[in-house]
Write a protein that binds this DNA or RNA. Structure first.
Lengths: 181, 181
DNA sequence: GCTCACATGTAATAAGTTACATGATTTC
DNA sequence: GAAATCATGTAACTTATTACATGTGAGC
């Protein structure tokens, strides 16, 4: 997901600063299926402004740091709708966790246990934050994707919990390889 | 997932050419949680060779194109095990599909239908290829992750199928925005 | 003769990450 | 007084993508 479209999409919902966009993609409703860092967001906002797809206005409120609030323009709305009208790239899932799981036999059991438990904690936290977001969200599209995210995370979590021990049982099996060195 | 570790991991299973590695990460057992293009794989193999973590040998079989078969060295095995001993980066999921779903109200119903059905086809194909891979796979770690992949894809698929119509029902709801232009 | 699968690689380019630089305000 | 949160941005770097360049052999 390029940072450009992402910023445009978020600003179509509401005005926001770069900092707020970063929070939304990291912790908010968007956080389980997109990602972007400051180094991607700020340049994207600058470029979108140049192209007239968004506008930034400076705000100085006493007792608060200066901020630049961006809002989408009509041209921006049109560009976003055009983008959504294309067939999307396929979804992608990258899992360093599964790479370790695949090589469980070469991994120290205690370490694998820590890795699995960290993954369980991650999935639990994500599921709970999605549930919380769903409670106070009225927007139909957002509700649909939150529902989806909750379902997927719940099932993933259940599966990992149910098969945790069988994975850890594989760990260390190939100790010969390390011993050979 | 950097291409380096990926190549090392695959070569720990068996010898392979760059072309074969590309197939494995695109279509094989690895394909649902990692990815890499030629432009990432070939330079990675070159660098790993320089570092002595893998070795390449040229093969000329009559009636076949020349190929360079890479195999992992002891140093490579050590490096891989060291890598697997680190805590992994968190998993990441990027979904252009969900971004469109989120903005369903601004999308033409026919287009959204096409998008959802494409996603359903994608999930079905992936689930089936994982099931097939599981049938003839004996390696415990691989079986574990295939099992996980099948579970996640099945549940995702079920959810999308069950909620397909409710998503399409949202489409086109915000026709006013486009009409305004 | 054409297209597909096998096979290796490079170059230009795009994109994003990490770390840095800076600074105000609030909370402990 | 320290740490956390709000807030903006840049620069160096890494990384990977896309497209290109090239060639063989098999099957239709």
């Amino acid at each position: 997901m390029n940072a450009r479209t992402l910023c445009l999409a978020i600003l179509n919902f509401r005005e926001a600063t770069g900092y707020e966009i970063r929070k939304l993609v990291t912790e908010g409703n968007f956080s389980y299926f997109v990602d972007a860092s400051y180094g991607a967001i700020y340049p994207a906002l600058a470029r979108l402004t140049e192209e007239g797809l968004i506008e930034g206005r400076d705000e100085w409120e006493p007792g608060k740091p200066a901020r630049k609030v961006y809002s989408i323009t009509n041209a921006g709305r049109r560009a976003l709708i055009a983008e959504l009208g294309e067939m999307p790239q396929p979804d992608s899932f990258k899992s360093p966790f599964l790479l370790i799981a695949m090589f469980a036999e070469h991994v120290d059991p205690a370490h694998l246990e820590a890795v699995v438990d960290a993954r369980i904690a991650e999935l639990t936290a994500k599921r709970d934050s999605l549930r919380e977001a769903l409670e106070c969200c009225e927007h139909p599209g957002s509700r649909w994707i939150l529902d989806y995210g909750i379902a997927v995370h719940s099932h993933s979590l259940d599966h990992v919990v149910a098969n945790r021990d069988s994975l850890i049982a594989i760990a260390g099996t190939a100790a010969t390889a390390e011993a050979a060195e």
